[in-house]
Design a protein around this nucleic acid. Structure first.
Lengths: 337, 337
DNA sequence: TTCTCAAATGGAAGCGCTTACATTAAGTGA
DNA sequence: TCACTTAATGTAAGCGCTTCCATTTGAGAA
């Protein structure tokens, strides 16, 4: 058991064939006759042979690794995406190599260089706001690339995402329809996606002529439920007349709900609340909280599928997928009877 | 730019030294004279040379990869651990290779084989309940191994974790002290750690002579806030006289709180609630929810540190770390004045 | 029968590094 | 001064695969 690991050469010797044949039996089975293939498989099982990925990568100048660059491992949003990625990749022989950019373009660029040096089979990157250098690296990459989470008209290669602007805009319009007029925006972290949500929100309010600067409250801190409480308190002190809050994500929204409960502010009549992402808990909160459902897992799945197709040479696929969103209207924002 | 990637040989030629010297300049700098080292570094920068990890791994028969096996990427608990792992690893030259076991021992074993075939520099595995085959593989592994999340007296190599039994027991005792007598246990997923929490809970209640089978409600489903609502409803229908709930984790606890709010069950007087893990939102819920704080991030950090030390040859370190837990008593379980 | 072609296999040259061993130059103590 | 370290570098043999070229064989075509 603790002997030297079996090599392809060992398999070849025992099977009475050349290493070339064993290699082919593994990677291009139809080039090897049935009997020889069976014999080789027997020996492999018997020896418990596992190919050495480093040797394979070195010899073939490619890997079976898909690099994934996300800004955070703890954010629910990205862990859902990851789950989608893993679920599809499990059925293929690809590995994933995770890179955590910590919301830093510099870090992303650095990781990109590391990843590219390994000649990955494919790359998944988050968002559309890469640094110019990173973008150049990606454009010149010798592997397919999928940008996820967002879409625009300028893909590096492929993309699957949705419009955060439209999601926020739809939500704001819903609040307006419900008769809310003093609508605040609560945003944390303020990454590019958050910024675009703020854009959609502002545009909707401006169209309706009810945009007020003082109702926009943001912070660079990462968002938490507690931060939702704090930001909402801030809004209340600045603008006691606020009658609805659009939260950049569900953690904040839950915080607002908790804070409202504490202050005996009645939701949704006195205060409307909307979140973003539609985490599971939104539907069972009390009252249930409206939110923009996003298809995080699906984005991960699709991204990988596009990558696998591209790697397999099926190029003519669609290269840009708007996966959409779904505004889920729940009691927290239903003021009309 | 899109030319062939620079190799170590290119660097060597330009620097006017042998490849061996360049290699040494990279991995054992103190074996190379200062001037030569500087010259090499210049060329490297100039060329944008990045070593080929596959070649390195093949030639040296080792990698700079730390394999991490966790049961789930979406569970907050593990993403916090991951964050700890990444934060320490960022300062070293190691990479992490994530494996998602999906709470399956078989899957874990399979991934282990894959990982071990890559001769990782170190391995982090979750829990102490590996399959016999997996355990054997780990014992014979030629790299250091850290088990995280739990501790016992039978480590494979090193371990950092805490006693789930003790955490649950302490919580149950706290509820008893507060005068609760009909205390239910809500558990989802029922992985080994959950099982041990149930053990600690049961032991405490039995000691107090108030253990009741009917108050134990579990399900194999993954836990969610909604499931917390559902399980609590189930408890209520079976045992309307329940006066406290120990939830196996915070999602369930939040669900119980929401459900209580809906049913106008007063927390904590009519019903005490405790969770497990102390997610951030527990402290700002309404009322704030008691929970067992666990040091997830710290476990990840420590595990990596132990690994790095072991890899660096610093063996004499402690091999088993009880990182403890902290029962945070909040209003949701404070019935006494 | 001879030619051609496809299928199946083998030979062997790397892929880009690391590292044991050899070599050289420069001390060092007696 | 000389045998003997020690430091700094070079030489070259791999690591375990893949893959480009043969080579062989057995058909079918002409």
């Amino acid at each position: 058991m603790s002997e030297r690991k079996a090599t392809l050469a060992d398999v070849a010797k025992l099977a009475g064939v050349s290493t070339a044949t064993v290699s082919r039996a593994l990677s291009t089975p139809d080039l090897v006759s049935f009997e020889v293939r069976a014999r080789i498989q027997d020996i492999i099982d018997q020896l418990g042979y596992v190919p050495n990925p480093a040797a394979r990568a070195l010899a073939s100048a490619r890997t079976n690794v898909i690099g994934v660059l996300i800004p955070s491992v703890t954010n629910n949003v990205f862990s859902d995406v990851l789950r989608g990625i893993y679920s599809v990749l499990r059925t293929s022989s690809m590995d994933v190599q995770l890179g955590n950019t910590h919301y830093s373009l510099l870090q992303e660029e650095k990781l990109l260089r590391v990843f590219l040096s390994q000649r990955p089979a494919g790359l998944i990157v988050t968002g559309i706001d890469q640094s110019p250098a990173a973008r150049k690296l990606l454009e010149q990459a010798s592997c397919p690339v999928v940008q996820i989470m967002e879409i625009d008209d300028n893909p590096i290669d492929m993309m699957v995402g949705f419009s955060h602007w439209a999601g926020a805009r739809a939500t704001a319009m819903h609040l307006i329809e419900q008769g809310y007029r003093k609508i605040a925006f609560l945003g944390a972290r303020m990454d590019p996606r958050t910024q675009r949500r703020l854009g959609g929100f502002s545009d909707a309010l401006k169209e309706a002529g009810i945009y007020e600067e003082r109702l926009i409250v943001t912070t660079p801190q990462p968002s938490t439920v507690g931060l939702g409480c704090a930001l909402f308190s801030e809004v209340l002190s600045v603008a006691p007349d606020v009658d609805a809050v659009f939260c950049n994500n569900d953690d904040l929204a839950l915080g607002v709900l908790f804070e409202s409960q504490r202050r005996h502010i009645e939701v949704p009549n006195r205060l409307g609340i909307c979140g973003f992402n539609d985490l599971e808990m939104m539907s069972v909160a009390n009252p249930p909280i409206s939110s923009v459902r996003t298809f995080r897992r699906e984005m991960g799945e699709q991204a990988v599928q596009m990558l696998l197709d591209a790697i397999a040479g099926k190029r003519p696929q669609v290269t840009k997928v708007d996966i959409g969103f779904d505004l889920i209207k729940r009691r927290s924002s239903q003021r009309l009877p």
